[in-house]
């Protein structure tokens, strides 16, 4: 399991300010904490970065790799910024990853970079027209992207298919469809395709205290389906892995000693599987 630390994102205020001021200390501190919690790669999300994206991505890559011996996941829609980042990336720490291509023609050029620099690439299974309806829709898009990757000369083992995790608070039925998509993706090739998710989107819009619970247990269910990588908070993944033996028991319908925890797990499983309707207070019912 590859954990790609999600914390260095321009969406977070502290990170954004550090990026703008080119202040290395907060960036390196956050990278270090994620490394210590088990991240195998650090995501550097600089947004669309239309102005000065190339220089910013290079600064991010070198700043991160000065602090931790990890490869970087280059997260932007800006082609030139990705290429600039790849040029300075220290491959002694591992192959970098591009985040991301998709079935949208505007994102095809990212495959060109993945081939040229022999790096991994995340392929979001979305097209130009709206969100995928279910696992079959996602598989169809995945197959198209795989064909295109081969055209561009990207080996399929370098491609991580991403089913696109959606918010459980607004599109509850998609939670299970994404889990099924992971299973379906694995069958699209031999050796099986690699899979990745942007985990925390599942709990986007949920109350603060509910978010880690949903993230952790959703992750464990995805893991059981065969997930290979997750862009996530490594601290949450660490907790999830500690709870995995208990969670798997509850998932199997077995009793565990900690009844309170069992209830939380059961309620969360029911919400993820669509057995009960999600509400912000679902844990209190």
């Amino acid at each position: 399991m590859l954990i790609i630390g999600e914390k260095l994102s321009i969406i977070a205020k502290r990170v954004r300010e550090a990026m703008m001021k080119r202040d290395k200390a907060p960036i390196q501190e956050i990278a270090r904490i994620q490394y210590e919690n088990g991240a195998g790669m650090i995501d550097a999300n600089i947004g669309p970065a239309e102005d000065g994206g190339e220089e910013l991505m290079q600064w991010m890559v070198t700043t991160i790799q000065e602090a931790v011996p990890l490869p970087v996941c280059l997260d932007t829609t800006n082609y030139n910024a990705v290429e600039a980042g790849l040029k300075v990336h220290n491959n002694d720490y591992g192959r970098p990853m591009i985040n991301s291509t998709s079935n949208d023609p505007e994102r095809f050029p990212m495959l060109e970079l993945a081939a040229k620099y022999n790096c991994d690439i995340i392929a979001l299974t979305v097209g130009k027209g709206g969100l995928p309806a279910d696992e079959h829709d996602r598989a169809a898009i995945a197959a198209e992207i795989m064909a295109r990757a081969m055209e561009y000369g990207v080996p399929l083992e370098n491609v991580y298919l991403d089913p696109l995790v959606l918010q459980i608070a607004t599109t509850q039925d998609q939670a299970l469809k994404v889990i099924k998509a992971i299973e379906v993706f694995k069958q699209l090739n031999d050796p099986p395709m690699k899979t990745v998710v942007g985990l925390s989107n599942v709990s986007n819009g949920c109350p603060k205290h509910v978010r880690p619970i949903l993230n952790k247990y959703y992750f464990l269910m995805l893991l059981n389906a065969g997930l290979d990588a997750a862009i996530a908070d490594p601290a949450e993944i660490k907790e999830a892995m500690e709870e995995k033996p208990l969670f798997d028991k509850v998932l199997n319908g077995e009793e565990i000693e900690d009844k309170e925890k069992m209830t939380v797990m059961k309620k969360t499983i029911d919400v993820i599987l669509g057995n009960t309707l999600y509400a912000h207070s679902y844990l209190e019912m």
């Binding site: 608070a169 607004t170 309707l277 912000h280 207070s281």
Partner: peptide
């Protein structure tokens, strides 16, 4: 919004 409807009832 079905989820907000449930939430309000809760």
């Amino acid at each position: 919004d079905i989820n907000l409807s449930k939430q309000l009832n809760i």
